[in-house]
Computed example of a mutant assay.
Amino acid sequence: MTEVQSGLAETVIASPDLAEIVILDVGHGNCAILRDGDRCTIVDARSGVLLLSELQRMGIKHIEHVVLSHADEDHIQGALQLLPHQSFSIGHFWANSDSAKDSDLWDELLALVDHLDTCGRLQANMAISTSQRDKLSFGRMGVSVLHPSPYEIGHGPGRASGARPRLTTNGLSVVLRVSIDDEPVALLPGDIDAAGLRRMLSRQTDATAHTLVYPHHGGGNGSASHARFVQDLASATRPELVIFSMGRDRFKNPSPDVVAEFGSSFPNVRIACTQLSSHCHSGALPAAGGSHLGNRSAAGLAEGKCCAGTLTLRVEDGGIYVHPEPGPHAAWIQGNVQAPMCSVIAAFPIQRSPN
């Protein structure tokens, strides 16, 4: 079995001039690599093995920042392998304290971060909010924190009482807007829910971006209405591409109601799922791989679970380039998928015209 067949990337020589955002197929979870040449920032870390493989493929030696949006397992588990790894130096670790989260995994991670901070291996920052402004930016990468505010993380998750807003761990997810060469490329909202989104939008936040990585893997949003949440989030983001970072075998994401609302209210948005949803295809899986996927690491490769697989975003020639490209991806869907939910989407745009 080759590395690609096992889900791991082949080793290639990294380009020192390349700036890109990689949305890694980690199954059910999130992980993004913001890369400028041989420097990068990691946002969430579901899978340690795949993340380490992709970083080594890129030739990364130094990680500027590791940012965890919130304390759920499917966003933090891979950090236990990444942070102490001898192949990388790490500048800063960022997360928000969460007394409502009492998992053994979160406790183990906090103990590790404390040890590495004490040893001088990284600088631990246990508060990240809109006050960070440009502290996470580096090179050609602009990284803005849109949520939560210092007021919100000061209260932390919990029940509403008096002046205290009711925000859950999900509602306090760190939301990042990432630009390349000042072009807003991606919104990474963690698992922000309806209450958190209302708080963020109440600040008149500019959340526009070419690509939206949809919260909570296309599942629940903490309210009764998928349609209202989609409308509020997509109206604020105005995306041309929506990515569902999801696994085929858990929770049956994305919700058909979510995809249908995009088809009804935002029909020119391209939909891309990292793995093939069971809502779209319930029979035997297509043959592993597909010419549209390329050679990025992806959790779904080995068993043929990839749909879009790992996605790459770059700014090229005045527009935003996305891989897998929409034409080959759509052709693979049409030839291999029984009942694709994204068939309700009329167009597969890829370029944003220069302003």
Rank of each mutant, 00 (worst) to 15 (best):
Gly196Ala: 02
Gly196Leu: 04
Gly196Trp: 06
Gly196Glu: 04
Leu197Met: 08
Leu197Glu: 01
Leu197Cys: 01
Leu197Trp: 03
Leu197His: 04
Leu197Thr: 07
Leu197Arg: 00
Arg198Ile: 10
Arg198Gly: 05
Arg198Thr: 02
Arg198Ala: 05
Arg198Ser: 09
Arg198Cys: 05
Arg199Trp: 02
Met200Lys: 03
Met200Thr: 01
Leu201Gly: 06
Ser202Thr: 10
Ser202Gln: 08
Ser202Gly: 06
Arg203Trp: 12
Gln204Cys: 01
Gln204Tyr: 13
Gln204Glu: 06
Gln204His: 09
Gln204Phe: 04
Gln204Val: 09
Thr205Arg: 05
Thr205Trp: 03
Thr205Cys: 03
Asp206Asn: 02
Asp206Gly: 00
Ala207Asn: 03
Thr208Ser: 12
Thr208Tyr: 06
Thr208Arg: 12
Thr208Asn: 07
Thr208Met: 09
Thr208Cys: 08
Ala209Gln: 08
Ala209Pro: 14
Ala209Tyr: 09
His210Phe: 13
His210Tyr: 11
His210Ser: 12
Thr211Ala: 02
Thr211Ser: 09
Thr211Val: 07
Leu212Ile: 10
Leu212Cys: 13
Leu212Val: 07
Val213Ala: 10
Val213Asn: 10
Val213Gln: 04
Tyr214Ser: 01
Tyr214Gly: 08
Tyr214Arg: 05
Tyr214His: 02
His216Val: 10
His216Thr: 09
His216Arg: 13
His216Met: 12
His216Glu: 13
His217Gly: 01
His217Val: 01
His217Ala: 05
His217Pro: 01
Gly218Arg: 02
Gly218Tyr: 01
Gly219Met: 07
Gly219Val: 07
Gly220Asn: 13
Gly220Glu: 15
Asn221Leu: 12
Asn221Val: 15
Asn221Ile: 15
Asn221His: 12
Gly222Asp: 11
Gly222Trp: 12
Gly222His: 09
Ser223Arg: 12
Ala224Tyr: 14
Ala224Glu: 15
Ala224Asn: 15
Ala224Asp: 14
His226Cys: 14
His226Asn: 14
Ala227Gly: 06
Ala227Asn: 10
Arg228Gly: 13
Arg228Tyr: 11
Phe229Asp: 06
Phe229Thr: 14
Phe229Arg: 08
Phe229Leu: 07
Phe229His: 08
Phe229Gly: 14
Val230Trp: 10
Val230Gly: 06
Val230Gln: 05
Gln231Asn: 15
Gln231His: 15
Gln231Gly: 12
Gln231Cys: 15
Asp232Arg: 12
Asp232Phe: 05
Leu233Glu: 02
Leu233Tyr: 02
